[in-house]
Amino acid sequence: MTASDLSVDGVTLTAGARRLVHDVSLTARPGEVIGLVGPNGSGKSSLLRAVYRVLRPAAGRVRVDGADAWSVPVRQLARTVAAVVQDSGTEVDLAVSEVVAMGRTPHKRLLSGDTPEDTELIESALTAVDATGLADRPFDRLSGGERQRVLIARALAQQPSLLVLDEPTNHLDIRHQLEILGVLRGLPATVLVALHDLNLAAYYCDRLYVLRDGEVTASGTPADVLTPRMLAEVYGVASEVAVHPRTGTPQVTFLPGEPVPAVPAGVDHPVS
Results as ranks from 00 to 15, higher is better:
R175I: 10
H171I: 01
N199C: 00
P188N: 12
E215Q: 10
R212A: 15
G186I: 00
H176K: 08
R212K: 12
L181A: 07
R185M: 13
D206L: 01
G182F: 08
R212N: 15
L208A: 02
G186V: 01
L165T: 04
V191E: 15
D166M: 01
L198P: 14
A194D: 14
L192Q: 05
D197Y: 09
R175Y: 13
T169G: 11
R207Q: 06
E179P: 01
L187G: 07
N199S: 03
Y209Q: 09
I174R: 14
E179M: 05
E179H: 09
A189T: 10
T169H: 09
Y204D: 06
L195F: 01
T221S: 15
H176Y: 13
L165R: 04
L172T: 07
L181V: 03
V193Q: 10
L211I: 01
Y203V: 00
T221G: 14
V191F: 04
E167M: 03
L165H: 04
L178S: 08
H171T: 00
E179N: 12
Y203C: 00
R212H: 14
H176E: 11
E167D: 11
T169V: 15
V210A: 08
D173R: 00
A201E: 07
R212Y: 06
V193T: 12
N170A: 12
I180V: 09
T190S: 13
V210Q: 05
P168K: 08
L184Q: 09
L192H: 06
L195V: 00
Q177Y: 02
T217Y: 01
Y204R: 05
P188W: 09
V183C: 03
I180C: 07
R212C: 07
P168N: 13
G186Y: 09
I174A: 13
A218E: 11
T190I: 01
G214D: 11
L198Q: 14
Y204G: 04
G186R: 11
R207W: 00
C205N: 15
E215V: 02
V191Y: 12
L184C: 08
V193D: 12
T217N: 12
R185A: 15
A202M: 05
V193G: 10
A202T: 12
T190R: 10
